[in-house]
Design a protein around this nucleic acid. Structure first.
Ligand code: SF4
Ligand code: SF4
Lengths: 162, 162
DNA sequence: CCATTCAGGACTGATAAGGTCCTCTATACC
DNA sequence: GGTATAGAGGACCTTATCAGTCCTGAATGG
């Protein structure tokens, strides 16, 4: 049903969470750890760690090792299209086996009358997914109140997007 | 990798083939049988039959039982959007578990900050897939020879350019 | 020196897709 | 009317992929 993998979905959730440093509370400062995000999102910790590791290797988040380490966004949310997240987790978007990028050709490639005709469809999907950024997903994350005014923004308020 | 199921891909191939009665040759007349299409496309016969049965139940193709029976298109190719084929084979398009249509909710639905925000993405995909019809896939189906396979894109008047 | 935290992979179980086959029904032709 | 053909509709199994867990090692801060 054209369903994207659950890991990719989790990645979006985690990234949106990473983009809200004020929502993290005192437990996490400018970098957020895997257990912290796991507790905040309800996703099991090992899965969060796996997703974050994949995202880090994909260049979407930066990591800080050692004590007081964690992950932080390398780009603001509105600069991360969803297509990027999908590509980082699930690999390049390839609807069928005959689009450029996936080496595994199908067995009927020689006779298939629509061989290669999926490319524009693939491009259309990729374009649609590239036009939507994580900021669009975040917009409704804060429904009406900005946040629970539990802690004042006294801490390191926000380090900008870098 | 946002890959649609192979059965859906086969359905598109089969439907495009069904839309070319002249290419079928003498073996198949106005209706085409499963083995005929299977031989023409290279897809195994049982799979073709399965796809065609699913498409028939989905209302995309008409069937004629009995001897000299077969399948035929109920709509011209340019009236069948790809989204229709996907919906007939794989069910409704639902990128994640929290979009409307798929009853299986995810476990983190209560805490997820992007719950419900996938709907516009889903709609964008569906719109993109609804705008492309099978006729667009058929355009380059007959490059210049009728059934010489493995044709390099060296032809002059190809509509590639994607 | 030690606690913390990420890196990276290996491993396993669950799930669903892909593919095959069988039986039954309907139709055309002999 | 009989028979061959061809689809309808499922049951079945086989396999691939994903999701999830865990372990070891390396880096960093205290
Ligand atoms: S060559 Fe044809 S059957 Fe194979 S993946 Fe491409 S469209 Fe599908
Ligand atoms: S509620 Fe959140 S985690 Fe669950 S499917 Fe929707 S976006 Fe994904």
């Amino acid at each position: 049903m054209l369903r994207l993998s659950k890991l990719t979905d989790y990645a979006v959730v985690v990234l949106v969470r990473l983009g809200q440093p004020d929502a993290a509370g005192d437990a996490c400062r400018d970098v957020q750890t895997s257990p912290c995000i796991a507790a905040a999102t309800g996703i099991p910790e090992p899965t969060v760690a796996k997703v974050l590791k994949t995202l880090a290797s994909g260049g979407l988040v930066g990591s800080q090792r050692g004590a007081r380490g964690g992950y932080r966004l390398l780009r603001p949310l509105d600069a991360i299209p969803i297509a990027d997240v999908i590509a980082a987790i699930d690999g390049p978007i390839a609807l069928t086996a005959c689009v450029e990028g996936s080496g595994n050709g199908c067995s009927t490639e020689s006779l298939c009358p629509v061989r290669g005709r999926w490319d524009p469809v693939n491009a259309a999907i990729q374009d649609a997914l590239g036009a939507i950024t994580l900021a669009d997903m975040q917009e409704a994350a804060i429904p009406r109140a900005f946040r629970i005014p539990a802690l004042p923004p006294s801490g390191p308020a926000l380090r900008a997007a870098e």
